[in-house]
Every structure is written in structure tokens, then in C-alpha cells.
Design a protein around this nucleic acid. Structure first.
Lengths: 133, 133
DNA sequence: ATACAAACTCAAGTTAACTTGAGGTCAAGC
DNA sequence: GCTTGACCTCAAGTTAACTTGAGTTTGTAT
């Protein structure tokens, strides 16, 4: 199993070295050993970093993400938690879709001010109803 | 036009008073006057706060959101900016959708460890290809 | 053997978005 | 007219997620 230098990880992920060291410090990833001072990473780490990036973009905190990996670095979560998280995500996706549509509409709306546009007002009402639930 | 006390805003939005004062401090919202010491808000503020919440959940910073309102508190953005933002959102929606699907799949997957599941591996590859673009 | 680039450590600094706390003020009810 | 509770101000503290910087240590190339 090939080992990766921190610079290779940097290159492949676009993350900064300081970020990787920080991730290791908080236990989010682990280096597999050292070559002199230099950290060596397992190739699997790249996959972990993909998942971490994905999780972050989904709005999870690093702490939460850390909880999604087992001691071995393999993804590991009880099924119910996973479903709950997926539900949260779907909710967020719905939010974002509303917002995206709102923005696109506003961009094309001929009404002099957005608040005068009935479609925009309707979107706001939808948001409000949704947020209350 | 009725005015709203901070407590009414708190009740209707679920935000904390300190948050509202903070939002006012940074110029995100404006109070319309005072009753003694107490801030009075226009009803329109509730709509603004809806948009702010939506923007936040979409990953915008308060600074960015502040830039989306005109001096009068009406939404206000150049069309190109709006479209760019909508494109960003769609990208993020795509991300989240991938993640949601991944989570649901993992929750139901019979493979002993997730990494052994071909579907999971495919998802990771998709993520990776996507992130590179 | 020497130089050097690339890592390293460790403490301290940074930014966003709030929260907390101590002490002050006021409108309304008794 | 006095109390009280809801607000207020202002400075300082908090958390997450990193970044920066100063000084140190190598493995590799000359």
C-alpha cells in the first residue's frame, strides 16, 4: 500500500498543509507514520477527505463529521442516524431550491420593486410556512 | 402601519433579542424608532428576517446578505449577481442531493463495510469528479 | 560535507456570528 | 410615587475552523 506525502494530499485535494495538520490534531484524520519529521498518509485518506468535503458542504461541523468515521477511518454510523441526517439534508435541499428559484425569478422580474411582485410575495409565504413546520 | 416590539419579533421568528440587536448593530436590519429605550420595528422586518434566515441556510454570510438589501430594506441586487448566486446554489443543491442519496443508500446497504459496497464507491468517484470541475 | 527546500512544532492570532454579564432606564400597574 | 419587569448599553467572552509566524529538523541533491 503506497503512502502519500502531505504535499501529494495537498495537490490532490486543494487543501492547505495547515488544514491537514489541523484535521489530524483534532483527530479527523490520522497519519500512518513519519518519514523523518514528515507525515505519511494512507491513500484511503483521500477518500476520507472527499467525504469530509462533502459533509462540510452539507453543513455538518467537523465534530459531527468526525463522528461519522470509526476508529479505522471507515465510514460508520447507525442506520437511524443516517436517515435522520438524510432527512435534514432533504429539508435543506428544499430550502435551497426555493431560494434558487426566488433568485432566478427576481433576476427576471419586471416589477419595479421585488416586493410588488406577487410571485415573490408568494415565495416568501412559502418560506414562512415552511419554517414554522 | 403597526409597529412591533422586539418581543413580538422574538416570538414570531424564534431569534433571540441579542441576535436582533446584533443584526441591527451590523446594519442588517433597522429599527424604526424607540418607545422609551425600546426598539420599534416595522412589520416589514419580519419579511426581511425570513429572507435572512433563508440566505443563511443557503450558506451566505451576513455580510453577503446585507448586500442583498437596498437602503430601504427592499431586496436589491444586480441581475448578474443574482444569476451567479443561483448557479452557486444549484451546484450546492447537487452536492447535497448526492450526499443525501449516499446516506440513504448506506443506511440500507447490506455490504459488511461501506467501502466494500460498489455503489458507495461509485458515489465517491462522482463526488471527486464533481469537485475537480 | 553542505546547503536547501520542505516539513515540522507550538503558541498566538483571525473571522464570523453571536452570547453573556454587569449595571442602567423607563412605562405601566398598584 | 414606587416597584417591577422588560429593555437597554457596552465591553468582554465564546466557538469553530483555520492561519500565521518564528524558530527547528531533516532527506535529498551537489
Amino acid at each position: 500500500m503506497r503512502v502519500l506525502d502531505i504535499s501529494e494530499i495537498v495537490e490532490q485535494t486543494g487543501l492547505r498543509p495547515s488544514t491537514l495538520r489541523y484535521y489530524e490534531e483534532i483527530g479527523l484524520i490520522k497519519s500512518i507514520g513519519r518519514h523523518g519529521l514528515r507525515r505519511q498518509f494512507a491513500p484511503q485518506t483521500l477518500m476520507q477527505l472527499s467525504l469530509i468535503a462533502l459533509g462540510k458542504s452539507a453543513g455538518f461541523s467537523l465534530d459531527e463529521i468526525a463522528g461519522m468515521f470509526g476508529e479505522d477511518g471507515q465510514p460508520n454510523l447507525p442506520r437511524d442516524d443516517l436517515k435522520t441526517r438524510a432527512d435534514d439534508l432533504d429539508k435543506q435541499i428544499h430550502d435551497l431550491t426555493v431560494l434558487s428559484k426566488a433568485l432566478r425569478h427576481v433576476a427576471d422580474c419586471p416589477a419595479p420593486s421585488h416586493m410588488e411582485c406577487p410571485k415573490f410575495q408568494k415565495l416568501l409565504r412559502v418560506v414562512k410556512r415552511y419554517k414554522r413546520s
